[in-house]
């Protein structure tokens, strides 16, 4: 057993994982520190202050930020969920559907949203939406987001599925499980890490999108990125840093919750 553990271990990988976290989090440290800056600057330190947090909650723009945060989170959640469902279903057909003529074309279609630069998708989608009379608003943002989330969900899920040997589902079907049961009780549990990865990628890509959203949104519907891009003639203010820090706080709470749930979960699992 100890030797098995030995083989799994790759020297230096733990160190590189820590490097990875450092790279990811160092810039955020800057964001957090400057959210407490008394000065309006994001490069010169002017003393500690909570004024930007007060601004977020009580300032004249706080209703805008609140609705923007709500829109962003709900759109990201719905878009990522829809994209994950669509992608999972597509991945099963692509990896477990035997060979068929439109396979390559379908793969091209699914990955199309990442191949086209965002600004092109943005203009094309707007032209298309207005030509079919799609009213711009929350719904148009949502549709556009589902579309560009699909490849981000699809690729992790399909690659995971390719790593699951097909004799599992064959065995299940030999035991008279129907396709739904095969999927639900055999494939899905093994597929879950891929589904989770796909969902998370789709979620952050939706949460981050500015260009497409800015084109296809209707007047008065803001998401966080469109509310944040105030940088043009004004420069980035620390209130954006404060807003970002708050968002980080929310996400860290979720992480803690998931870790805690995971621990409870595995505690029950470890019984058998």
């Amino acid at each position: 057993m100890s030797r098995a553990h030995d083989v799994r271990h790759m020297p230096g990988f733990g160190f590189l994982a820590v490097v990875c976290l450092l790279v990811l989090y160092l810039p955020l440290l800057v964001v957090m520190v400057y959210s407490f800056n008394e000065s309006r600057s994001i490069t010169l330190w002017g003393g500690f202050s909570l004024r930007w947090y007060a601004e977020i909650f009580y300032g004249p723009e706080s209703p805008k930020f609140k609705t923007a945060a709500w829109n962003s989170l709900t759109i990201a959640l719905i878009a990522a969920t829809s994209a994950t469902l669509i992608a999972t279903s597509a991945a099963i057909a692509m990896v477990r559907g035997g060979s068929f003529r439109l396979r390559s074309a379908t793969f091209g279609l699914i990955t199309m949203p990442i191949m086209v630069p965002e600004i092109v998708t943005a203009v094309a989608t707007l032209v298309f939406f207005s030509s079919i009379g799609f009213v711009l608003g929350y719904a148009s943002i949502l549709v556009a987001h589902i579309v560009f989330c699909i490849p981000f969900a699809y690729l992790p899920i399909s690659s995971r599925l390719q790593g699951i040997e097909s004799h599992y589902d064959e065995a299940a079907q030999d035991l008279y499980a129907n396709r739904w049961q095969t999927f639900r009780y055999v494939l899905l549990p093994m597929l879950l890490p891929g589904v989770l990865s796909g969902f998370l990628l789709a979620f952050i890509i939706s949460l981050d999108d500015f260009i497409i959203t800015n084109f296809v949104k209707g007047a008065g519907v803001e998401t966080l990125p469109t509310a944040i891009f105030g940088a043009v003639k004004q420069g980035i203010k620390p209130d954006i840093m404060a807003l970002s820090t708050l968002l980080l706080g929310v996400s860290v709470l979720l992480v803690t919750a998931s870790w805690w749930l995971g621990r409870k979960d595995s505690a029950t699992h470890d019984q058998h």
Partner: peptide, 28 residues
């Protein structure tokens, strides 16, 4: 690993992505 245990329902499984992407990605 490519299997074919879902070949019979392939079209139904692909329909959502085809519909969404043909209409809102391919057409634009």
């Amino acid at each position: 690993v490519v299997g074919d245990s879902f070949a019979a329902v392939r079209t139904r499984l692909l329909a959502p992505s085809w519909l969404v992407l043909l209409f809102f990605m391919f057409a634009p």
